[in-house]
Design a protein around this nucleic acid. Structure first.
Lengths: 298, 298
DNA sequence: CAAGACGCATGCATAAACCTCATGACTGCA
DNA sequence: TGCAGTCATGAGGTTTATGCATGCGTCTTG
């Protein structure tokens, strides 16, 4: 069942070794022991009749032949990965898959965290990394380094399928003792108050972009690059912030906070999940999307 | 070292099963026993959670899911095959490879047969099939069903690398008692004689095409579709034939035959070997080409 | 219709390949 | 110099191959 006595599984080992440039780390990624990966490298060296990776001090350096092979192997392994993950059953109970999700800390709190809590029992072997979205994240997804990107509709790249995860409204959040919240907040109240706003990698957040488009006379007193940090900055001050309704509801009761409708209309934010078109039928990703949608439902 | 616990070698089994549609034949092609292939099919069925191939009377019929998978698997296996065969050593002594060569019976006699004789000792595990060239053979090569095509330069398709194997001259061959061979053959002698000619799948052979282009007044008494048959048709008759010099030399001494230069100039025939461009560096094919060239040298 | 041929699936004993665990050898760094 | 980190190597257990036997279904044939 071999192609010219060559074990195709060795291609997976080679691919991982070339990415990690370390026997130990490659072994970890494939859930193997280090000696097993070392033996795999030995078999690869015999098969290809080339050292492939040579120890140079603390680093493993690819040989020229390995460099030539790498992209071709990457293609084969990528195709096989796509084929297998879209055609074989995905069993959360036994899967040891590692998901990589690009999402803001807000989405992580609202959608990813509850899923992870559920996973602890239902899918004990699954690992999950969350990385912040940034310009160039789409390319990273295309290279297969990220499984999906969760962001508001406006921030999504083109060329890959995208699904609605949930819709979100915004509210004004502030200290519960702030007299502003005694009666409905007016535009004048809003403009006169000190504000906490969020910018992620120099890009104003969804709500921020709309407020600024209206013409901005607010005093921005604090700028942070985290949504979940905002509620902590409001108690004992007269500052207010325009935050996601789900986030506000989560923190009210835990911190001395009050919320109110904003004095101006704001479009509903549509939080989307985008994934590589080549992975549209990946059973694991289908399961992940389903789980995220379920937890973000409310 | 597995991709999501999936044994990539099973893809080779699947690919072969889909091509052969028979557990027994697929097992033979992969040098496996029938029970081993049956077990592989069982593992494939478990992995893909689909029957894949179901026995319908005497035939194995692919399921819809198998039909979807087939082309993707074929691509992966093809890429892997190309990668491996171009990067791993080819050892004739231990290889169990099966070469498929498209060549006329003339080329088989001159170049393939001596190589096969050598192979009996040097490469006991190698198998070799020779099939006749025919229209559409290039497509067969592109699908990977044929390793190389040996034919005169004029008959070679486009788009794939082609190398000179050897050059060949033509001579007039006839019965050794035929008075024609007592002195140089003239054009009149030639035109007046009865002829044996070769046509392969309704295409006149190389020499035949040139003779006909000159304007043809010969009496064609016998047409056959085999070059090596021609010498057997000449003794005890006054028929003559325009045959490859190597073939003439091979038969003279074994049969009562005589040869003479043709009474008109004939271009040298350039016998070429063509192979799929994707396999240009296939170490096995490189070895095969080298061997053929060595034996056809004279 | 009965008998035989053929092909897929399965069981069992044995051998090979591969994995884990434990350990050794080497490099770089404090 | 000693320690941490990394790769390689040797002793035992699981998967998967082989060879052989066999059951079961279907198609063919006398």
């Amino acid at each position: 069942m071999r192609l010219d006595r060559f074990d195709l599984n060795l291609l997976v080992a080679f691919h991982t070794l070339m990415e990690e440039r370390s026997v130990t780390r490659a072994a970890e990624r494939l859930h193997l022991t280090q000696p097993a990966m070392s033996a795999a490298l030995r078999r690869l060296r015999e098969s290809f009749n080339d050292p492939l990776l040579v120890a140079n001090g603390k680093q493993m350096v690819p040989s020229p032949h390995a460099e030539e092979l790498a992209p071709r192997v990457a293609e084969i392994v990528g195709n096989a990965q796509a084929l297998i993950s879209s055609s074989t059953l995905f069993d959360p109970q036994t899967s040891r898959r590692h998901f990589r999700i690009a999402a803001s800390d807000y989405v992580t709190t609202i959608a990813v965290q509850p899923l992870l809590a559920e996973l602890a029992q239902q899918a004990p072997g699954i690992r999950c990394s969350v990385i912040p979205p940034h310009p160039g994240i789409t390319e990273q997804m295309e290279r297969g380094q990220v499984d999906c990107i969760i962001s508001p509709e406006q921030f999504q790249g083109q060329g890959h399928p995208t699904e609605l995860l949930f819709e979100e409204e915004h509210v004004v959040l502030g200290w519960s003792e702030n007299p502003l919240f005694a009666k409905p907040i007016t535009q004048e109240d809003y403009d006169a108050a000190g504000h906490v706003v969020v910018e992620l990698s120099n890009t104003p957040a969804f709500a921020e972009q709309f407020v600024r488009a209206r013409g901005d006379t607010r005093r921005i007193e604090v700028t942070v690059s985290s949504f979940t940090l905002v509620p902590w900055l409001l108690p004992d001050t007269h500052r207010i912030a325009l935050v996601h309704a789900r986030l506000a509801r989560l923190f009210i009761g835990k911190l001395p906070l009050a919320m109110a409708p904003p004095p101006f209309p704001l479009p509903r934010m549509r939080e989307m999940i985008q994934f590589n078109r080549a992975r549209a039928t990946d059973r694991g990703l289908v399961w992940l999307r389903e789980g995220l949608r379920r937890h973000a439902g409310n």
